[in-house]
Design a protein around this nucleic acid. Sequence first.
DNA 1: ATGAAAGCGCTAACAA
DNA 2: TTGTTAGCGCTTTCAT
Lengths: 334, 334
Amino acid sequence: MTNIKDIAKKAGVSTAAVSIALHGGSGRKRVSSERAEQIRRIASSLNYRPNSAARMMTSNKTRQIGVLLRNAPDIPMRNPANFETILGIGEVLSGAGYLQVLVPLSRIENEISRSNRVFSERLLDGIIVMDVHSSRLYAFVRRNFRHSIFLDTNCWNKFSCLRRDERKSGALAAEALKRSGYKKIIYVGPGRGQSPHYSVLERFEGVNEVLGTADGVAFETEEVNGAEYLENLKLHLSRETGIICYDTLIARTVHSHLSQSGLVPPRDYGLACCDDSHETYLTFPMLSRVDFNRYEMGKLAAEMIVGSMESKKRPPSRLFDVSWIPGGTIKSKG
Amino acid sequence: MTNIKDIAKKAGVSTAAVSIALHGGSGRKRVSSERAEQIRRIASSLNYRPNSAARMMTSNKTRQIGVLLRNAPDIPMRNPANFETILGIGEVLSGAGYLQVLVPLSRIENEISRSNRVFSERLLDGIIVMDVHSSRLYAFVRRNFRHSIFLDTNCWNKFSCLRRDERKSGALAAEALKRSGYKKIIYVGPGRGQSPHYSVLERFEGVNEVLGTADGVAFETEEVNGAEYLENLKLHLSRETGIICYDTLIARTVHSHLSQSGLVPPRDYGLACCDDSHETYLTFPMLSRVDFNRYEMGKLAAEMIVGSMESKKRPPSRLFDVSWIPGGTIKSKG
DNA sequence: ATGAAAGCGCTAACAA
DNA sequence: TTGTTAGCGCTTTCAT
């Protein structure tokens, strides 16, 4: 592998000149432009590729950003839509010259393993944390990484956090069904087990704010566990019934299951969803739902961390706004 | 930041002793175990974290593996199911002490950009290539990276490639519909535009082998472009009609669209799919389809590249086998 | 504008 | 078993 020494020798200049010619920012020049041009030619003729380890060492920066997420084996592929966020992050990071390092953590306990290079060595300039982790992990990240963003996690502070407005998303879905005149509305979501994602609580609260005390609407709840909830739903269904699903996975599960019995919205029941995904846009665009552009949210998170690295200021936390997509799985009017 | 020099000073030993005590493999010991223990204690009391840039430099290895994939803006989020593969890769890599670097490439032309650090510097020990790229890129990767795996790409050679048996997947879906006695069978897939993914060609060929010359079955094709194909399908549907979809995105799109008109399988038509995904397993488990465990395929790819790095041998190419999942969207017998 | 040289943190070869 | 030392490739003073 050729290095700057080889180039320096061939060009008859010092290694310093080569370094400056190749990487010296366009600040005050320190090498005549002819020399620089000549050096660049030689470099490319020698197929020179800088040794980034050496550059990392001298600059004390890796220009690598980690993205933390949960994965197998305890909850394999917990949220498929996270991919959109990751791709959004990747677009901004690669545009800014940063590498995106994916860090899957398996267990919520004991996640800060000494054997994980991400925690035991120092090869990330910053970290974007996604998913639910222990508060111990959140604290560890804040303490051990100069730059961090908590993206759609249970961690919420004044700085460095980014979340979707989950309460509003619940409220929007509930209002839409109520407005359409459904007499019975069933909220279908995961149970509030130990340390659930904050959206599990907030979406329900948003729904409950609208429907908990609403006149003329019977409000019920169906907890997702196993498959029996699907049979329950079928039994309690009528044309006056609206279903609100926590996320698109549940919405699609409910939809495909009920369609097996010939029940389809909006004819036989109303279907609304507090969540969204690009895949839903592609395969189930008629679903009445609250939008969630995870790709844009990922881009925003990446911009926040890149900005904080360049300005040395911690970015203020932000709430990602949501809006209603009418779709076609609820009836148009009472 | 503390370094081995600090530790050496505090322990009254040489830096070499520290280096060996902390990282020296369990080979022949070069430091007495008491010393080693003491050194480890001091290191952790000083909250020592090795500088990986320095280690990369001396070892001439980064222990970082890249995963190349296509992305925005020309084809944003082209294949959501790729995430499963990536998570599978991640599980094996992180278990083996490698970092997973995600490399999104935007344009198929001009993808080998000088401004992309992955290509201009040397910070990856190996690369796993996913998705469709130019043959120029495939060649570049082979030339410039000691270790590479071509995973589900158009690139196929004797070594370092991993693919699903796409022809068989087409054949399995076709046979299932034929066996059930459908009189008309429609294949719904993307058009064969310029440089399509190899599965676009092979799945169709598999289907065509079975149905092209079959007696008593009318075989038709519907190309996916825009949304009009969905209306076409609806017009030509009957209880004697079976639909074969190229992938789960199309299958779900067809399914949700037709259900809007009250048409549901297996009552009103038969629905089979040549593809699979974890999300399908979760939300549409009754879909009759050919299995595809991308997570396992990702794990296998990662094992191939890790193995090749440790054995210095290029791994022979492999074909990932598939099998039929009966599901419940086609009728049981003729 | 240019070159010489120090040093980043670590590992490995060599000496003791 | 230990300590000393010479690099790894690059950037950055500091002289010239």
